[in-house]
Structure formats: structure tokens, C-alpha cells
Design a binder for these strands. Structure first.
Lengths: 237, 237
DNA sequence: GATGGTCCTTGATCTGCGTCAAACGGGAAA
DNA sequence: TTTCCCGTTTGACGCAGATCAAGGACCATC
């Protein structure tokens, strides 16, 4: 975990030209609001495996992810890890329940975030019901995803877990980058295992099995879906 | 699942005298706001095992639980069930992500809910930033609980799951009713199993084992903690 | 008091996934 | 080219928890 690089403040037209302008939290804001927001935000870059914030740390900031991928995870005292989510560009990270973070976030590959002071952002939202509703909407969507993931963790087999993960991840990438035959997997096998409540060996074996069954093809850093329908069926049932 | 009984509209002082006045969503509202809200809400009672709403149904209402306990669950096509939460008085049920419910809610024992039209409530909240912030706060708290539960489902042993459940449930009841030596368990063993991602047999065996180890005492419909420290240690580690 | 139903517990056995251990493969450094 | 490293795969084996099956315990109804 190396020292993070702080980029300069976004220039005058930064927020308006932001890559995630139209689908992040900021989608709820008009040009005037955005101009005000620009003064509160700073772009910050993190190298692979750097920690954006850690469990138990004070929550001083909120974040929008601009580029790259983050993993969010919780650790048990004995070191067992559960990844509670992966964060993609446009996702908002800024609804701390308490003064301390209840999970850690670190970079999978290089990332850029848009960071804002938590208190300044709270003040900013205070009388912007449209923004509050937007944040609400995002929170509720995340809650819904969290519940879906509970079903996966509590009630699905290893093969179903892996298939569900691949389909879900593909759908998120498609929404971001448009259709593609291959599904990039920037996270490693251990991350996938800790997300699905499995071991790395079981994930690896399951990938191999799906490959033998001609459902997927496995490449370094990605997979491609040979039989999307089969994969979707496994994810649904 | 029998027909639900619709109680009369709350009388003039209902909202102000409401049992959950001070800790539900409505805690964010003053007397004037409450008076307005009264016209939008109806108390509805459900008998044990009646369904308040079901997965895939249209979301027409939002709810505050007044009395009793609800279970929230998702079903897989083949019937596997994951309970995603238990609802206690004061809890708010009203943040649908889409036009259809993504989970079902039904009564564990007799319950009373305060029901409001979803659209009327949305209109009501529109220019009440304090209420929006309150709803946000509740959503974020639920999200945090959901993530904790992911850790439990993905990374804990059966004994840890049961201990964590008992401690968590006790804490919620204490917050509601004050300290007590016994922990009421209105839900049955199958519910506990489906909440913890276990089978009913494993839950039963784990209760028996905790009793043999003098951690808990098991009674019909409740348990008491003989060694709360041991139970808490199992829940933490 | 008998009957049936529901929920819970217990025992015997099975199995999916975890654990332990070794080998593979591709990229970086020497 | 060789060596090392690290992420990944594969194999052998073990076990926590699932499955299958049989018994309680309690309660309502007759």
C-alpha cells in the first residue's frame, strides 16, 4: 500500500465534463449545482492494492469512483474476509452509518476517485431534495443487491455462485462499456472466492468445470461466455 | 394466509400517540407534519402467516410496523428460501427499488402495520429534506446490517451463526423492550435456518450443543443466555 | 383418553466443499 | 537462457453440515 497521489483540483469545467456526469450521484444536479460542487471535490489516484479507506478508520470523506475497480470487504478478527461488493466507475461510496468505516475499500488496479469532505458534502445536500432522493435511490439499489447476494451466499451451490457472479459482473460491464463477448475479471481468484463465500480452490475447480462443460472459456484476466443461456439458467435457478 | 382485517382510520390523535412515534421514520416529523400524515395512513392487522406483500407483486404501499414481527424473504424458483431480515416495531418498509417487490413479507404471529400509499407518501416526502435524510439514515443502517449478514452467511461456522443471531436478536429486543434475561424467539427453527443459511437440523443440533455447553438454556419459544460473554465471544470471533 | 398435526430433536449416513500439498505457467529479474 | 515468484490449477483426503429417517413433545379437536 503506497502513498496515494493527489491530483490537482479539477479545473473549471471538470464536473460538467466528468466521465460519470450522467450516471453517478451527480446525475441529479444541474449546471449551477455542479459548479458549486467543483469547489468541494478533488480527484485522487490510487495504485493497485492501495487502500482508499479502512475498516474502523474515521469517515472523513465520501467518494465517487471515476476509473478502475475497488473491492469493499469486511474482516473478522481471525483474518477471514468477506468481500461485500465491487465498485465500478459511477458508483457512489458515501453513506457511512457511523463515524467509523464499517468496511475497507482498496484498489484493484489503478483507480481514480472523486473525493469530497463528508461534512461539506452533507451541508451541500442539506437543501437539495432532488439530490437526497438520488442518494436514496442509490442506497436502495445497493440494499437490493445486498439482499440478492445474501441469497447467493446462503442458499446457492458453488457452481451457481460462480455462474451468478459471472452473469452479474458481465451485466455491470455491459452497462458501462456496451456489449462485449469477453468478460474482464480484474479481480483475482481469491477476491472472487471471498466474494462468493468459497475457497480459491473451489473457485478454480468450478471455472475449470464450466470450461469442460463448454459454458465458458477461461483466459488470463478474463473469461468469455460460450453458452450465455446455460450460464444464465444456472444463475437463475 | 387469510384475509387481512382493515382497522378504522387512526383517529385524530393517532400519529402523535403512536407507539413508534419516537423511533420510526416519523421521529423526523413535527406535530404539523404528523397531522398531515394521519390522513395518508391506515392501520392494518394481519394474522399469523398472512402475507403483507409478496415478491413480484406491484409495490403500492409503504409500511411501518407497529406491533408483532415480520419475516422478509426471497425464494429461488426451486423453493429454496433465504430470509433477508426480521422486522420489529418501528422498522420502516418502504424503499422499493422497482415497481415490483423484490422480496416477500409475512407475519410471524399477529401484527399491525401502518400502511401508506407509496405515491402519496412519495409526494408527502418531496419537500421534506429532514424526512428524506431520516429515510436515508434508515436505508444506510439496513445496508450496513445486510453487509454484516453477508459476512455471517459467507464466512462463519454454524455455531458462530447461531450465537451471532442470538446476540443480535437479543440486542434488538433489549433496545425495544429493555433488558431481560430471556430472549423471545417468535420465529420457528425453519425461519432461523433460512436466515442463517443452514438446515433446520443443524440449527436444532447447534442449540442443543450450546445448551450442553451451558451457554444458553432452551425453552419453547425462547432461550436465555447462561453465559452471555461466551456467546458474545462466539459472535465476535 | 385417543387421534392427528405441527414443530422439534436425535441418530445414521452421505457429500460438497474445505484443507493440505504439490505442480504448473507466465512474467520479471538476473 | 535460467531462476524466481506469484497466481492458479490439480489431486488426495477429511470434515462440517446436508440429507434421510425415525422418534418425541406439545396442543387442539373429537
Amino acid at each position: 500500500m503506497r502513498i496515494s497521489l493527489v491530483a490537482g483540483a479539477p479545473n473549471g469545467k471538470a464536473c460538467n465534463d466528468c466521465a460519470i456526469r450522467d450516471f453517478g450521484v451527480c446525475a441529479a444536479l444541474d449546471k449551477t449545482d455542479l459548479r458549486e460542487l467543483e469547489h468541494l471535490s478533488r480527484h485522487v489516484r490510487f495504485a493497485s492494492c492501495e487502500t482508499v479507506f479502512a475498516q474502523e478508520e474515521m469517515t472523513t470523506s465520501v467518494y465517487n469512483l471515476l476509473e478502475g475497480v475497488l473491492r469493499l470487504y469486511k474482516l473478522l478478527p481471525d483474518g477471514r474476509r468477506q468481500i461485500v461488493g465491487f465498485v465500478l466507475p459511477g458508483d457512489f461510496l458515501g453513506m457511512p452509518i457511523s463515524v467509523r468505516h464499517s468496511f475497507s475499500a482498496d484498489a484493484i488496479g489503478a483507480v481514480t476517485v472523486c473525493r469530497l469532505s463528508r461534512t461539506a458534502f452533507a451541508r451541500y445536500t442539506e437543501n437539495k431534495p432532488h439530490l437526497l432522493r438520488r442518494i436514496n435511490e442509490l442506497a436502495v439499489r445497493e440494499l437490493s443487491q445486498a439482499r440478492d447476494h445474501m441469497v447467493l451466499l446462503g442458499r446457492r451451490s458453488a457452481a451457481e455462485k460462480v455462474a451468478t457472479f459471472l452473469i452479474g459482473w458481465r451485466d455491470r460491464l455491459v452497462q458501462l462499456n456496451g456489449p462485449s463477448t469477453t468478460v474482464a475479471l480484474p479481480m483475482n481468484r481469491q477476491d472472487i472466492a471471498d466474494f462468493l463465500g468459497l475457497t480459491i480452490e473451489t473457485v478454480s475447480r468450478t471455472f475449470t468445470k464450466l470450461e469442460r462443460d463448454h459454458v465458458i472459456g477461461v483466459l488470463p484476466g478474463s473469461v468469455y461466455l460460450l453458452d450465455p443461456a446455460r450460464a444464465e439458467a444456472m444463475a437463475a435457478a
